[in-house]
Computed example of a mutant assay.
Amino acid sequence: MNFKRFIAVFKARNIEFFRDKSSLGWNLFFPVLLLVGFSFIFSGEGRSAYKIGLLAGQEHSESQAQVTLKKIRFIDFIDYSDLELAKEKLSRHSLDLVVDYSTERYWVNEESSKSYLAEKIFLGQPLAQPSDFTRLQSSGQSIRYVDWVLPGILGMNMMFSCLFGVGYVIVRYRKNSVLKRLKATPLSAFEFVSAQLLSRLFIVMFMSTVVYSGCNLFFDFFMLGSYIDLFIIGALGAFCLISLGLLVASRSKSEELIGGLLNLTSWPMMMLSGVWFSLEGAPEALKIFANFMPLTHLVAGARAVITEGASLSDISFHINALLVMSSLFLLLGAYLFSWNTER
């Protein structure tokens, strides 16, 4: 490992990125536009799907009112035995309403438009009149939807920057025979790959920090945890995603092929990693599948730090998952890496 050669490649890659004004502008303004759009879209209107948590004493069977409520379409009903856990999820926008039929009480989140509409649906049932149930607000500090979706938007932006920023660059280098020329130098594959990885990690974390800090001046984001913990989980997630990008591009020879492969890799993560909506109440098989995606652990870990004040020990499952996947992706990427364009 020659440190001078490593620094030379690291510096050259950073200069190449920052001189590309279109790429720099996209990384800066795309997440900002998404945050602005979601802050207006979800400020007064909700979506068509709702999640209601149902509680009942262990000794009670389902009442007729509960059976009638569950017949409503387009609503997910999730059973809970722990009232405090259900109220916590309500305050964090994972649930829209919590109903306890055994004590005839229900809880709403005053900061959620979906909770308001779910309450109207619940009270509109013939067997659940307002006079029968006691209305309560969720415990804990409620957050805005823009605060809840923030980790997802930043994580998604980091995902695209990591995957496409590394994948396209390496394939372009390979296609233009840059890698073939570098192979003739004393530069080793480990030095080149590690320089690319750390360069992209620096760029992603720098851009994400700038975007978060700039938007925080306007939105005053909710934050319960430590900024250091948030930075650490963000860096681990970015490292894992960059490693995945290196693996996908390890043997690709054309930009068209790498574009399809990267889209195939990124779209499932964007839809199933909890970026836009909570996976609470989703089928167990879907949750297991989502746990094999790096973005799931990045978003879940960052969201726990921001909205729940979680420490690194509290999100150790997500940290360990990212470390294991990073190691696996790096080993496979190093084993499969090819310098040449010839097949």
Score class of each variant (00 low, 15 high):
residue 1 M to S: 11
residue 6 F to K: 05
residue 21 K to S: 08
residue 22 S to Y: 04
residue 22 S to I: 08
residue 24 L to N: 00
residue 25 G to I: 11
residue 25 G to Y: 11
residue 26 W to K: 13
residue 27 N to S: 10
residue 28 L to P: 05
residue 29 F to P: 03
residue 36 V to Y: 11
residue 38 F to W: 03
residue 41 I to P: 01
residue 48 S to L: 06
residue 49 A to K: 14
residue 52 I to D: 01
residue 54 L to F: 05
residue 56 A to R: 13
residue 58 Q to H: 14
residue 60 H to D: 14
residue 60 H to Q: 13
residue 64 Q to R: 13
residue 67 V to C: 06
residue 69 L to N: 10
residue 70 K to W: 02
residue 74 F to P: 04
residue 74 F to E: 14
residue 77 F to I: 06
residue 77 F to Y: 15
residue 78 I to E: 03
residue 81 S to T: 15
residue 84 E to L: 14
residue 88 E to W: 10
residue 89 K to A: 07
residue 91 S to C: 00
residue 92 R to G: 08
residue 100 D to W: 09
residue 104 E to V: 11
residue 104 E to N: 15
residue 105 R to D: 03
residue 109 N to Y: 12
residue 113 S to L: 12
residue 114 K to R: 14
residue 116 Y to A: 10
residue 119 E to Y: 01
residue 120 K to H: 12
residue 126 P to Q: 06
residue 127 L to I: 00
residue 129 Q to K: 10
residue 134 T to K: 15
residue 138 S to Y: 10
residue 139 S to V: 10
residue 140 G to L: 00
residue 146 V to S: 05
residue 148 W to D: 08
residue 153 I to Y: 09
residue 155 G to R: 02
residue 169 V to F: 13
residue 169 V to T: 15
residue 180 K to D: 07
residue 181 R to P: 05
residue 183 K to E: 12
residue 186 P to N: 03
residue 191 E to M: 07
residue 202 F to Y: 08
residue 203 I to N: 09
residue 204 V to E: 02
residue 206 F to G: 12
residue 208 S to H: 05
residue 215 C to P: 06
residue 216 N to S: 11
residue 219 F to W: 01
residue 222 F to V: 05
residue 223 M to A: 05
residue 224 L to R: 15
residue 232 I to L: 12
residue 236 L to T: 09
residue 236 L to P: 12
residue 240 C to G: 00
residue 241 L to T: 01
residue 245 G to V: 09
residue 246 L to Q: 13
residue 247 L to W: 13
residue 258 I to R: 04
residue 264 L to M: 14
residue 268 P to H: 00
residue 272 L to P: 04
residue 289 F to G: 03
residue 302 A to K: 10
residue 304 A to V: 02
residue 306 I to A: 11
residue 308 E to H: 03
residue 315 I to M: 04
residue 318 H to V: 09
residue 320 N to R: 13
residue 323 L to W: 03
residue 325 M to E: 04
residue 332 L to V: 15
residue 334 A to K: 09
residue 338 S to D: 12
residue 339 W to F: 10
residue 341 T to R: 15
residue 342 E to V: 13
residue 343 R to S: 13
